Amino acid sequence: MKATFMCFMSFMVIALDLSAQQPQFRTGVKTVPVYATVTDRAGRFVTDLAKEQFEILDEGKPVELTQFSNQFVPITAAIMLDLSRSMLPRYDAVIAAAEQFIVRLMPGDRARVGSFSEEVRMGPPLTGDRDALIKFIRDSFDLRVGMRTRLWDGISEGVKALDGIDGRRVVFVITDGQDTWSEVQMDDALRMARKAGVLLYWIGMTGTGGPELRPQIRPNAGLRSFVEETGGGYMRFAEIDEINRIMTEVAQELHHQYLLGFTPAILDNRLHKLEVRIRQPNYTVRARKSYVAEQ
Results as ranks from 00 to 15, higher is better:
1 M>R: 12
1 M>P: 06
1 M>S: 12
13 V>K: 15
14 I>N: 07
21 Q>C: 04
21 Q>A: 01
27 T>N: 04
39 T>A: 00
49 L>N: 08
54 F>A: 03
58 D>K: 01
59 E>I: 01
61 K>G: 02
65 L>T: 05
65 L>W: 10
66 T>Y: 07
72 F>N: 02
73 V>D: 10
78 A>C: 10
88 L>K: 03
88 L>M: 13
90 R>Y: 02
98 A>Q: 11
108 G>R: 14
110 R>V: 11
111 A>Y: 09
112 R>K: 11
116 F>D: 14
130 R>A: 15
130 R>P: 11
134 I>L: 13
135 K>T: 10
135 K>P: 01
136 F>V: 15
142 D>K: 12
144 R>M: 07
146 G>T: 13
159 V>R: 05
165 I>C: 11
167 G>H: 08
172 F>E: 04
179 D>A: 03
180 T>L: 08
182 S>K: 08
186 M>I: 05
188 D>I: 00
198 V>I: 12
211 P>G: 02
213 L>R: 04
219 P>Q: 08
221 A>R: 06
221 A>L: 08
223 L>Q: 00
229 E>R: 13
234 Y>N: 10
237 F>R: 04
248 T>M: 13
250 V>T: 02
259 L>N: 07
260 L>V: 11
263 T>E: 15
265 A>R: 15
266 I>A: 15
274 L>N: 12
279 R>T: 04
280 Q>S: 11
284 T>F: 09
286 R>C: 00
286 R>H: 14
290 S>Q: 14
293 A>P: 02
